[in-house]
Nucleic acid binder design. Structure first.
Length: 339
DNA sequence: AAAGCATACAACCGCGTTTTC
DNA sequence: CGAAAACGCGGTTGTATGCTT
């Protein structure tokens, strides 16, 4: 029963790989491809266990690995994803295709975590130290993470399929979304940010998303869309917009001070000039939802300090126009298994 | 110049899950 | 269906390198 006896690991070499070993492994994989790690070392003439060979290939020798300094965009993606998914490095790595989970994990542990700590932010909860946590917020984030986890798994399966689909169907759209919207569509990868996280989250709660939730999802998906060639058609029908049964249709910005603080602290990890440039940009994308912002945004956002104000041009009595929000969701380029 | 400390990152280890027989 | 191997993931360790005193 079962498989044949596993390789005997006694006498196998451990520790850092030499250039010669790398060449042997590369040469073998070049000729025979990777996989069947168990038998690979003997065939390649290596005194290593298959597990060690696999790790060396995946984390170091693979040709599609991007090495070197992490960009600000990548840093931001990691921080936002970590806030959402926790220490699920392989899931986070799917949003940074050229980076390995090991590299992201190391980068987080050696730099980002310390940087957040220095700034008075708990790297695990992504909340300011000492601040009273909002259990409701944490619960919502947890819901989002669960759905996002499921979506990630499904998306991974669908990515390959979708690429073939789009290659073969460039001129024959047949998706279950608003045809009026379709006629105005840019290619999927050029559309407004995907908001499937919010869509998924919406299935778990009747509460309207906060500005924090929206901003978080927008930033996350903007960065993902820049990094991932994922073009899966949405299956969301326009009549199924997430706000169909929700009231009120507007929310006072001032109701969300706590969440503003959360977003503010996350984004305070970045240079102010970047924040000043990029945050207004995505707010402008959502001009229908944030009318007050676009009308009064000449001065950009104000970020004074770590706990600084993110309110910018928002005032307590300004309203978010939730009625316009479904339009953005319908335009979402990436499908979700839960819709 | 050298010792001690900090940092970065490659690699290992253990464990849960999946696959194969 | 169960057992065992293989795989994949996250936590941790070891070591090289850089910095400070």
């Amino acid at each position: 029963m079962g498989r044949s006896k596993c390789c005997d690991e006694e006498g196998l070499k451990k520790g850092p790989w030499t250039h010669e070993e790398d060449q042997k492994l590369l040469s073998f994989i070049d000729k025979h491809g990777c996989g069947s790690w168990r038998g690979l070392p003997a065939k390649a003439g290596l005194q290593r266990c298959g597990k060690s060979c696999r790790l060396r290939w995946i984390n170091y020798l693979r040709p599609d690995i991007k090495r070197g300094k992490f960009s600000l965009q990548e840093e931001r993606t990691i921080i936002h994803l970590h806030a959402l998914l926790g220490n699920r490095w392989s899931a986070i790595a799917t949003y940074l295709p050229s980076r390995t989970d090991n590299e992201i994990k190391n980068y987080w542990n050696s730099r980002l975590k310390k940087r957040l700590t220095k700034m008075g932010i708990d790297p695990m909860t992504h909340k300011p130290n000492g601040a009273a946590g909002s259990s409701k917020y944490v619960a919502n984030l947890s819901h989002m993470a669960e759905w996002e986890s499921a979506r990630l798994e499904a998306e991974a399966r669908l990515v390959r399929k979708s690429k073939i689909f789009f290659n073969n169907n460039n001129n024959s759209h047949n998706y279950n979304i608003n045809p009026t919207t379709i006629s105005q569509q840019l290619p999927y990868y050029q559309q407004l940010p995907c908001l499937d996280i919010l869509k998924a989250w919406q299935t778990t709660t009747t509460k309207l998303p906060t500005i924090h939730d929206i901003s978080h999802a927008i930033l996350l998906n903007n960065s993902r869309n820049k990094n991932l060639e994922s073009s899966i058609p949405s299956t969301l029908n326009s009549s199924e917009n997430i706000f169909a049964n929700n009231v009120p249709t507007t929310t006072k910005v001032g109701d969300d001070h706590q969440n503003f603080h959360n977003l503010s602290t996350i984004n305070s990890c970045f240079e102010d000039d970047q924040l000043q440039t990029e945050l207004p940009s995505f707010m402008q994308d959502f001009s229908g939802v944030f009318p007050e912002y676009t009308q009064n945004s000449t001065n950009g956002l104000q970020v004074d300090n770590i706990m600084g104000s993110f309110y910018g041009d928002f005032e307590d009595n300004k309203l978010i126009n939730w009625n316009n929000f479904p339009n953005y969701l319908v335009n979402s380029p990436i499908g979700s298994p839960v819709f």
